[in-house]
């Protein structure tokens, strides 16, 4: 299951990443394995995702979301 499968309002824990380039970028942004994230909303025109982490908010593309394995909590 990846972030892409989440519905707005759902919370999840990060398990792992499936792409190394995306992984290094996510790590720099403070999204680590075991981080908890909330999918808050989706952008107009069905584009990017608005996610809330413990200390900050970020926007990611669907293609980036697909590289993050998660479990819903």
């Amino acid at each position: 299951m990846t972030i892409l499968d989440m519905l707005p309002g759902q919370k999840a824990r990060v398990i792992a990443f499936t792409n190394k380039t995306t992984e290094t970028n996510f790590l720099s942004f403070g999204l680590l394995p075991n981080s908890v994230l909330l999918l808050r909303r989706k952008a107009p025109f069905g584009g990017s995702l608005y996610i809330i982490l413990e200390s900050h908010v970020m926007a990611i593309r669907q293609s980036e979301a697909a590289d993050v394995l998660i479990e819903i909590i």
Binding site: F26, H56, M58
Partner: peptide, 11 residues
């Protein structure tokens, strides 16, 4: 080349 968005939304 891979294209990226990944952006911080500051308070």
């Amino acid at each position: 080349e891979k294209s990226m968005l990944m952006i911080e939304l500051p308070l």
